[in-house]
Design a protein around this nucleic acid. Sequence first.
RNA 1: CGGGGCGUGGCGUAGCCCGGUUAUCGCGCCUGGUUUGGGACCAGGAGAUCGCAAGUUCGAAUCUUGCCGCCCCGACCA
Length: 492
Amino acid sequence: MGKSLTKRSQDYSKWYNELVVKADLAENSSVRGCMVIKPYGYSIWEKMQAELDKKFKATGHENAYFPLFVPKSLFEAEEANAEGFAKECAVVTHYRLQNNPDKQGKLQVDPHSKLEEELIVRPTSEAVIWHTYKKWIESYRDLPIKINQWANVVRWEMRTRLFLRTAEFLWQEGHTAHATKEEAIEETELINNVYANFAENFMAIPVIKGIKSAGETFAGAETTYCIEALMQDGKALQAGTSHFLGQNFANAFDVKFATKDGKLEKVWATSWGVSTRLMGALIMTHSDDQGLVLPPNLAPHQVVIVPIYRSDEQREQVVKKSKELQSKLQAADIRVKLDDRDTHKPGWKFAQYELKGVPLRIAIGPKDLEKGTVELARRDTLSKEFVNQDDIVDIVNNKLPEIQSKLFNKAKTYRDNHITKVDDFDEFKKVLEDKGGFLSAHWDGTQETEDKIKELTKATVRLIPFDKHPEDGQCVLTGKPSKQRVLFAKAY
RNA sequence: CGGGGCGUGGCGUAGCCCGGUUAUCGCGCCUGGUUUGGGACCAGGAGAUCGCAAGUUCGAAUCUUGCCGCCCCGACCA
C-alpha cells in the first residue's frame, strides 16, 4: 500500500473516485447517495452472495422474500426499532402522477392519490417479517424458523459515502425465531462466526469479534454481536452485525407459541446482516496505488491471459496457444479470462487488469512459443517470472492460495500493528491522532463516558472483544474501575 | 439541517474578478497510416442548449436573484 495512497486516503471519497470509478466498479448515479454497480462490481457481489448462501444453507437457513413497503402501523410496532430508524426513512405518500397543467410535458403528484396510510420503504425488515411470522407460529413444532432474504433497503442518511453509506444498498438479512433464549443466542453467535469466517477466509479481511456497547447496539436488540475491521487509513469499519433481539419483537407483534407441556410462551428472535459495504471494506483493505487488489477466492477472473504479437500470423499462433492454456486452466476450475481483443495493446491491457485487481496475469508472445514459456505476473507483489507452459496449471493452483493467504496476512499484520494499549487519556488522544487504529483501553462501561470520549476525540467503543482475558484496570477517562479492555477507534 | 467549496463535450479542466467574433487545453472517441514483450506515434475529424429558471444589458459562461445538484466539515448512521 503506497504512501501516497495512505496520505490521500484521509480524503476517502477521492480515493474511491480514483480507484473505484476508474476500476470500473461503480459510479455515482444521479440519485442522491445511490450507486450504480457496474457489471464487474456486481460479479464480485455475486461471488460474495454465493459463498454466504452456501454457508447459510449449510447451517440450516432458507431464502425467502418479503415486501419492500412497510405500512407505518407495522413499522412503529416495535418502539425502539422504529425510533432508531425514524429519522432516516423514505416514505411513500402518494400513488399517482398527473400532467402538470402549468407546465407542458411535466408531471406532478396527483393530490387526490394520497394514501390512507403511508408506506415506509424498508430500512430493515423486522417489522414486516415479524408481522408475518406471527401467522406462521403457533406451536413449538413451528420453530425454529431460520430465514434469510437478499434484498435492497433504503436509509435516508444525512450524509452518504460511496459503498460505506449509500442511501440504497444491497444486503442479506437473516431473521430467525426460536423457542428458547439459549437457542437464539447460539444462533446469534453462530452467524457472527460465519461472518468472521467469511470475511477472513474468503475476503482476506481480518476482523475482530465482539459485542457492541449499549450505545452502539442495534435499535430493538438486546445484544449486538459484530465483526470489526480496520482500514488502511486507520479508521475502523463495522463489517457485519448479528443481533440477539430477545423477546422484543415477540412482544411488539404478539408472537406466542404453545410449548410441549401446553404453556404459551413468547418467541425469541435474532436478526443479522451484511451489505455491499463489505465491498468498500474489500477495497479499503487491499487496494494500492495501481488500483484494486482482489483476493483470488473472490476475483471474478483469477487469471487473465494477454497474447502478444506483431503480425497476423503471429497473432493466430499466439491466440491458439492462449486458448489451449485457457482450456487447461478452466478444466482445473480456475476462472480465467482470455483478452485477445485486437483493439487494445498489451501495455494497456496490463494496466487495465491491474486496475481491476486480477490476481494473476499470463502474457504469452512469439518468444514464449519458441521457448515453451509464459510470463506470469502477480497483482499483489507486482512481480513477474517466466514459467513453463506445461506446468501452468500446477503453478497457478499453488499461487492462488498463496496470494489469498498473503493478502490476509499482510492486512492482519497491519491491523495487529495498529492495536495500541493505552492507559492514559493524553496518550489515548496522541495515539489516536498520530497513529490511528484501535486503542485497547479500560472503560468504566457507562454511556456518559463513551459519549464524553466521543465528544473529545471522535473515537467510539467499537467493540468489547470476546478473546480478551479479563483484566482489572481503571477507565482511561474517569479512572473508575474496569474489568476488561475494550477497543476504541474512529469509525466510518 | 448548519458552515465551506464547486457545477463548462464521455472524463478532467481554462476562461468568470474587469460582459464583446467561431468557448481553452489534456484524456477518451472516430478515420487513415505507421506500430504492438508495460498505458504507442503522426495526420485529419466528430462531439458543449457553459446545472436550471428569471432578470440586467445592444450583447451573458462571465453581473443579479431564485432553485436544483455534487463534494468536504459537523450533527445522524451499517
